[in-house]
């Protein structure tokens, strides 16, 4: 991520307080060696990948899986491992991350 100028003590809010959700700005894509790839056609919309993802990286809109948030996915593979779709119609497969 880009190095922003860090605030000095006079600019920082007092009391070790943060606004909510600022970690969303922190990109962890570089942690990945593999990435999950989603097939919309094979997806049965069971939402299991969404609940088991440690990184809140399964994008859900109106109760439907719509893909992955690759800024925050660390490539652990839990989603793919837990995906209940059949071997010949996998909805999530892990692929090597290109360097």
């Amino acid at each position: 991520m880009s190095e922003e100028k860090k605030p000095g003590w006079k600019e920082l809010p007092e009391g070790d307080v943060l606004e909510a959700g600022t970690a969303a700005k922190f990109n962890v894509a570089g942690w990945r060696s593999e990435k999950p790839v989603w097939s919309k056609d094979n997806c049965i919309q069971c939402m299991i990948c969404w609940i088991v993802c440690p990184d809140s990286s399964v994008k859900v809109v109106d109760g439907k899986m719509t893909g992955f948030d690759y800024d925050h996915c660390k490539g652990c593979g839990i989603c793919s491992h837990e995906c209940p779709t059949k071997a010949d119609k996998r909805a999530i497969v892990m692929e090597q991350e290109k360097k």
């Binding site: 605030p7 000095g8 003590w9 007092e14 009391g15 070790d16 943060l18 959700g21």
Partner: peptide, 30 residues
């Protein structure tokens, strides 16, 4: 700041590493 303001959630007591601890301590000195 109040932890109970659920409409404006805040994180209180975050972890400071080498890049923020000193600034927060400096504020206390002030």
């Amino acid at each position: 700041v109040s932890l109970l303001d659920v409409t404006k959630p805040v994180t209180i007591g975050a972890l400071d590493l080498q890049d923020y601890y000193f600034e927060h301590r400096r504020q206390m000195a002030e």
